[in-house]
Simulated scan of single mutants.
Amino acid sequence: MTNPTPNTPEYEATSPYESFDSKKLHEAAERALDHHLGTPPDKKSKRRNGDLFSVCPDINTETLLANASEDLLSISAIAADLADGVEGSRRSVALALSRMADGVHLLVERALDHLDEPEMAAIFAKQQSRVG
C-alpha cells in the first residue's frame, strides 16, 4: 500500500514542557474562560459567606411581617396535609409543626397590628434603622 501523504510528520509522545505548574494552568484556564464567556478579567466572581438568601435592606417592617405571615400559613398547611398522609409519631410531629406555625403566625399578625399604633411604629422604625 502507498502512503496517502508522502511525508507524515512525526510527533513526540511527550509534552514540550518538562513539568506542569497547576497554578499557572489554572490561571490560564480562567483567563481563557473569561475571554470566551465575556467576563471582564478585572472583575472576579464574588463568593458569598454561605448565605443562600438575603433580604433587601430597604424593605419596610410591614412588608417583611406580611410575607412572614403568608409563609407561616403555607408551612402550616403543608404540615397539616402531611399529617393526613402519615401515621404514628410522624403524624404527631407533622401536627406539632402545623400548630407551631399557627402560633408563630398569630405572633406575626399581632406585630402587624402593633404597627398601626403610633408608638409601636416608632419603635419598629428605630429597630429597622439600626439593622439597615
Rank of each mutant, 00 (worst) to 15 (best):
R130G: 04
S54E: 07
I75P: 01
H26V: 09
D58G: 02
E18Y: 02
G88R: 01
P40C: 00
A111R: 05
P41E: 14
A111I: 02
D113L: 15
R110K: 09
I75K: 02
G132M: 06
E12I: 08
L65Q: 02
Q127W: 11
I59N: 04
E87R: 01
I59K: 13
S76G: 07
P16G: 12
E70V: 06
H35V: 05
A101R: 01
L33F: 15
A96L: 05
H36Y: 15
A96S: 06
D34R: 12
K46M: 08
M100Y: 04
E117F: 05
E30L: 14
Q127D: 06
F124C: 03
V108A: 00
A28R: 02
D84Y: 09
E119S: 15
Q127L: 07
A68V: 08
I59T: 08
D113P: 10
P4C: 03
V131G: 04
A13T: 06
P41D: 15
A94P: 00
L73E: 08
T8K: 14
D42T: 07
I78H: 00
D34K: 13
K24D: 09
A28G: 02
D42K: 09
V104E: 09
P57M: 09
L65S: 03
L25N: 12
H105Q: 13
L72H: 01
R99T: 15
A101C: 00
E109R: 12
E87P: 01
D34G: 11
E10W: 07
S98P: 05
E30N: 10
N49D: 13
S54W: 08
S74Q: 12
L52C: 00
G50L: 09
S92K: 05
E62T: 06
R99S: 11
P40T: 03
L115M: 13
P6W: 11
H105C: 13
G38M: 11
P40G: 05
M1Q: 11
A29M: 14
A94K: 00
P16E: 09
